[in-house]
Amino acid sequence: MTASFGPLASRRLFIKGAGLVALIGLGNAVLHAPPVLAASNDNKYPDDAFRQKNATDAVKALYGRDHEASDKIKLDAPEIAENGGVVPIAVTTTLPNVTSIAFIVAENPNALAASYKIPEGTVPAVANRLKMAKTSNVIALVESGGKLYSATKEVKVTVGGCGG
């Protein structure tokens, strides 16, 4: 990422770009200086959740409750990753009173990829890059009004080649 700006680079682009750099690699749980805040009810960094191997344990450690699928969550992710090292995903939701958003990559060595606390009055929209070793369900978790909702999409990671 260069530090120079063309005439078209807006402030929005800048912020987005900077955020993306900071978050790359989270899927691999390399977290020396956590750029994200804890999503659970307290503000401590959720290191226990990030250490969990599978999706169920990670959700349990982060939220302590089950999630239910919601059609009010829109999860944008590619069908097939163009580069498993940086898979762009984005989530937006029309659910009210969102307090946190988190991403799970079920098949990663550590399932929890990122967790965001959404302060009151913030638009609940997050874009992120995920590192994915192999084909996996990506789960977006949205905490809304004290309940936990989710949207799931499978993203395929392939060695590629052999296009007709």
Binding site: D76, P78, E79, I80, A81, E82, N83, P88, T158, G160, G161, C162, G163
Partner: peptide
């Protein structure tokens, strides 16, 4: 266009472009 150009072929040919079916 073919939705999977950077997957079926070396990505170095299209480093700046991202494809996909893009239903929405």
């Amino acid at each position: 266009a073919f939705p999977y150009v950077p997957i079926a072929h070396p990505r170095r040919f299209t480093p700046d472009w991202t494809f996909g079916i893009r239903e929405e």
